[in-house]
Design a protein around this nucleic acid. Structure first.
Lengths: 112, 112
DNA sequence: CTTATTCATCAATTATTTTTGATTAAATTG
DNA sequence: CAATTTAATCAAAAATAATTGATGAATAAG
């Protein structure tokens, strides 16, 4: 049994809410920390909404890879999904994106 | 020899500058995508400037780990270093930070 | 009801990032 | 100059994340 004290333990002990805050933003920035996912956000920003098949053509990526990356963006709440028929349409979660990203990133990864 | 065409190849062929843009932001968001590094930025935001030994106490992390994480923030140009004597003092690179992060993150990871 | 389409999920492999402990370098102090 | 302090770097190991190809679920269309 490992009884050593980890970074996370110490921080949670001294300041739980701060630790939760870092945790939350870590997840969001991790989702943003990938070229392919930034390209996905760019395409959604440009077109308003896109389906997986649209993205597959634009990014030259197979469907399984796109589903993987879209899930990461979804879990970080940076995008939202609406299913119509067999298609899934993805859109930006503006409030979350705009909360994190500066206005200067408008039209690249966010929309005003 | 691998002749398969990668995502990066295709994108650079069709739009070099867009690919470079994604590359640049990927690096910045990667630097932000870690609890410990967010905590480092928070401490710098709070105190204006900090040395590695300050951070070691505050975050309960060994020096080598901090140097590693500080280098990642430096490479992403999110922080700057000034060495005085045997100490290295780290400060925020406000223009870069504020270019990327929203004003709503003021006082957490940026300063206005 | 059979076939086709769209997309999510899964397990195994591969790649990347982080940690660890030690070593090195530079500046300071006695 | 020898000893100490501060911090960067390095190589090996451990931990995480991404890719791959296949399978399965849901809807639509013939």
């Amino acid at each position: 049994m490992d009884k050593s004290i980890s970074y996370t333990d110490v921080i949670s002990y001294t300041d739980v809410s701060l630790k939760n805050t870092f945790n939350l933003y870590e997840k969001k920035f991790k989702a943003l920390a990938d070229q392919k996912r930034l390209h996905i956000l760019y395409e959604i920003t440009q077109h308003g909404e896109v389906c997986v098949c649209d993205l597959s053509e634009k990014l030259h990526l197979p469907q399984s890879k796109l589903s993987y990356h879209l899930k990461i963006l979804m879990d970080a709440k940076l995008i939202e999904k609406e299913t119509r028929g067999t298609w899934s349409y993805y859109t930006l979660n503006h409030s979350e994106i705009n909360h994190v990203l500066s206005e200067e990133l408008c039209c690249l990864f966010r929309r005003d």
